[in-house]
């Protein structure tokens, strides 16, 4: 897999989550959770359903407000920022459920990812100023590179809704990559994919880390994929952190085994 040339060389900051607590109307979704995503690593966040993984993602991307605690990306505190400011700092995210407009072409959807890197406003776009056209052309070229990187270059002109589910998920990943993120939040990127698409997505994620040096925070239920890809793992259960460490250590942690088996026997 050939990676696209890396974005302008900026250093990748660490993500530090400290004592993060989120409460909704008395329900504690996250309880003093902490972990660190080291620069350029794949960090997996796992746990049974309802463990608080999606809540955590929503706080990291500014969709939910934290009740207490801090989230720092390098020097920036994220908990007080609105979503678009967090995106501006280089945090890209894909959603668990598809968030791709079905009728727009894949190319236009990916161009949306370039929003924070482009400047064309209403006047320039409306008057079709040359500067707008140049910017558009430059970024479309980059979008095509990224599409090729994830293997969607043949699908660029098609409406996103016409693609098979797995390819739509890949298109979302590509859209997040189009933001040239420093940190990528992936919420169940391979859910609903065929085995073949899973392999492709896994190699894209590995490629993102290895050739672009981007940090990845990954929520995923496919444990095989997590163990193969992740450099470190944090396990949540009922909003609490129950384990944290290298994949091999976490796998054998008795608390983790209990959380998963407990859930299965209860189901």
């Amino acid at each position: 897999m050939t990676a696209p040339p890396p974005p302008p060389g900026e250093h990748i900051p660490a993500l530090e989550v400290r004592d993060l607590t989120v409460r909704f109307a008395g329900l504690t979704a996250l309880d003093a959770v902490g972990f660190t995503v080291r620069p350029g690593t794949v960090h997996a966040l796992i746990g049974p359903n309802g463990a608080g993984k999606s809540t955590c993602f929503n706080v990291l991307s500014g969709v939910y407000r934290a009740t207490e605690g801090s989230v720092r990306l390098g020097p920036h505190e994220l908990t007080a920022l609105p979503p678009h400011r967090i995106a501006d700092l280089g945090v890209g995210r894909i959603f668990q459920n598809l968030a791709l407009p079905p009728r727009a072409t894949v190319e236009d959807s990916l161009m949306l990812g370039r929003h924070r890197l482009t400047r064309t406003g209403f006047v320039a776009a409306g008057l079709r100023l040359p500067s707008a056209a140049r910017e558009e052309a430059r970024h479309r070229a980059r979008v095509r590179e990224i599409a090729a990187f994830v293997g969607l270059e043949q699908q660029l002109a098609r409406p996103a809704g016409s693609l098979p589910y797995g390819q739509q998920k890949l298109a979302e990943l590509a859209r997040a990559l189009c933001m040239e993120p420093k940190l990528l939040l992936l919420d169940e990127p391979v859910a609903g994919m065929t085995a073949d698409e899973r392999r492709r997505t896994a190699s894209v994620i590995a490629g993102v880390r290895d050739s672009l040096g981007i940090s990845v925070l990954l929520v995923e239920h496919d444990m095989g994929l997590v163990m193969r890809l992740a450099d470190s793992v944090t396990v949540l259960d009922f909003g609490r952190r129950i384990a944290d460490g290298a994949p091999g250590d976490v796998q054998n942690d008795p608390a983790v085994v209990r959380a998963y088996l407990g859930e299965e026997s209860a189901a």
Binding site: G62, V63, P101, M179
Partner: peptide, 15 residues
């Protein structure tokens, strides 16, 4: 269009 189609995703995309 992003705001119309998925307000939250639009914000997360930096809009």
């Amino acid at each position: 269009n992003a705001i119309r189609d998925h307000r939250i995703a639009a914000g997360v995309m930096g809009i």
